[in-house]
Design a protein around this nucleic acid. Structure first.
Lengths: 207, 207
DNA sequence: AATTGTGAATTGATTCACAGCT
DNA sequence: AGCTGTGAATCAATTCACAATT
């Protein structure tokens, strides 16, 4: 269990980036890496990387660097993705169905077990997992002790869906709906808002 | 033109959130709003909101608050989304096709004019816009002076696609591929990585 | 000799308290 | 009286320089 004093939130995001880079090194059969090399690959400064890692422990060997395999495992431990985590998705429209079919979750340690929708299997493509009606959500989530949910419903429905998920026992929500969700203390919400990302680009390209 | 001293990057993201809240107020025919009310809706503290706004100018009236319509327009001016901005998307797979069909871009001021792919119209649903072969990318982007691109190709292809886009004149990239893109100084990259967002949730739900 | 780990210094962002308008 | 705008103060994050270790 890592001691959590006051770890910058961005440091945790960067751990994920380091992990991706380590996985690439491992594919290339590289056993060991210096903070300089890993930092460059991750697009940060070497002291940043070292500081980030020491928030969670000491993983390197002075004079030598970091063992790729070991560091990757330790980061996965810290993030809690050593074992596959189940998740559900609510809102099986275009975007929702595409996310359900996305192959990038499994290597990161996540599996979307099912989608839920008011009108199962309406628009878009057919995802590989079942799409179930909303009235089955609560039992499904409880029975499998699922903690993570993805919301891809329209803004008008999102807060209500969030409330249902939280009542079912969800404590982590990845929210694609363009609004600020209000949730209790013990629930974490991460927002993904593509329109906002584009607006942000728009600001910078005016330069 | 706003003076840009040292504006926190997150302040610009928050501008987008304020804009969404203002649009909601406008729909409800609310003409005027205080920093307290708007901040609460946006999920920030009132002084945060006021400080953010003063990075770009003075938009309120002391004793009264902010005029909803005026503030919304001024924020759009700042972000550069007063007029519709054209964009292209590269990688028309599941996710790419879903984004092309997404209806949330138009109200934010963006329009995806076309998709590009090595193998046009292969997987997933058929998007409303044309999907063109990669060899038409450069001319298309140049002829229409497009500045913004969305990358939804696999990681292995993303850097090459980014290079092509930049040669064609793109200066803002929204990157969904799970790797760190290396780009010249004048190009802005925003990353959206759903797997990393899930990892981040995983860390916090262990709490 | 090389490279990590870290306290100290710096830089950046947020919060506060209140001055300044309407 | 009410509410914005902002300099000053606090808090957080990043960078640096170098001691510690192999």
């Amino acid at each position: 269990m890592p001691k959590r004093r006051s770890i910058p939130r961005k440091a945790i995001y960067r751990l994920s980036v380091y992990l991706r880079c380590l996985e690439r090194l491992k594919e290339n059969a590289i056993k060991s890496v210096s903070s300089e090399a890993l930092a460059t690959a991750a697009g940060v400064a070497p002291p940043q990387l070292r500081k980030d890692l020491t928030y969670f422990g000491q993983f390197g060997t002075r004079g030598l660097g970091y063992d790729v395999e070991t560091l990757a495992r330790r980061i996965r431990d810290t993030l809690g993705t050593t074992h596959l985590q189940p998740a559900v998705l609510v809102g099986a429209g275009n975007l929702g169905a595409a996310l359900m079919a996305y192959r990038g979750f499994a290597p990161a340690g996540f599996e979307i077990l099912a989608g839920f929708d008011e009108v199962p299997r309406r628009r878009g493509q057919r995802p590989p997992q079942p799409v179930l009606p909303m009235n089955r959500l609560k039992d499904f989530v409880r029975a499998r002790h699922i903690k993570i949910a993805i919301i891809t419903v329209p803004a008008a429905a999102a807060q209500d869906v969030a409330n249902q998920l939280i009542r079912a026992g969800i404590t982590g929500i990845l929210n694609f709906a363009p609004l600020v969700l209000h949730v209790p203390e013990h629930v974490t919400v991460n927002n993904v808002n593509v329109a906002i990302e584009l607006e942000n680009l728009s600001y910078f390209i005016k330069g």
